[in-house]
Amino acid sequence: MSSKLILGRRVPVLELNDIRVNYGAIAALHGVTLRVPKGKIVTLIGANGAGKSTTLRAVSGLVNVRSGSIIFGGAPITNLPPHHIAALGIAHVPEGRMIFSNLTVMENLRMGAYLRKDKGNFPGDMDYIFSLFPRLGERLRQSAGTLSGGEQQMLAIGRALMSKPKCLILDEPSLGIAPILVQAIFEKIVEINRTTGVTTLLVEQNASIALEISHYGYVLETGKITLQNESTALLKNSEVRTAYLGAE
């Protein structure tokens, strides 16, 4: 199977086994299983309401998992409190960005480093973030709420990187962003993955761009994984093409 090929014999950094999540009486995820190998970009695509965000929220502890297990770096993290999961090295860039709009760009980045003890390395880390997103450097003392959607997304990603995560999870980075910036943001996601080697799990409605930049992809439909393969293969898959890529 091609999935074996790409994963090799390495243990995945992040692994979800048959995750079930309910919102009240309504089941949002009916058994989601996926693996994110070290250093790779894995994407989860699917329609609105398929459970993509819920999957990410389960990983970072924001929703309660009814059954199944989530393993990170070999240890179970299922239903740990979110601050505990963050401390283990998972940085979640949430849907809608959730930047601290009353704080400045600088203060938001400082907040991202909340858990870190090595305050001495901040200038270097900030420089790295400004090299990725020069706009943030120009707007350092500006209130984050005054940034454009794209700049806020850059800030949300920069803030997540300030924690020096082992695993970055991104929820719909293209949402609410000027189309011209979408391509740029995704290029940066690839660049971050290449330069820092951070394992990346990406949820995206814009399936074509997500599959273009990722190594492996999963398709989520109404709370279940229906397809999975290397991203290049999924891009050619006829089901994926008609349902998510707008092909005739």
């Binding site: 924001l62 601050h83 963050a86 949430p94 601290f100 909340y114 924690s163």
Partner: peptide, 24 residues
């Protein structure tokens, strides 16, 4: 202080604060 920062973040956005590692 760090705790003050945590309180501030929590008052602005509890979910985002939790994702930053703030113990609510």
């Amino acid at each position: 202080t760090r705790t003050g920062l945590a309180m501030h973040a929590l008052s602005l956005n509890p979910t985002a604060a939790a994702l930053m590692g703030v113990n609510a």
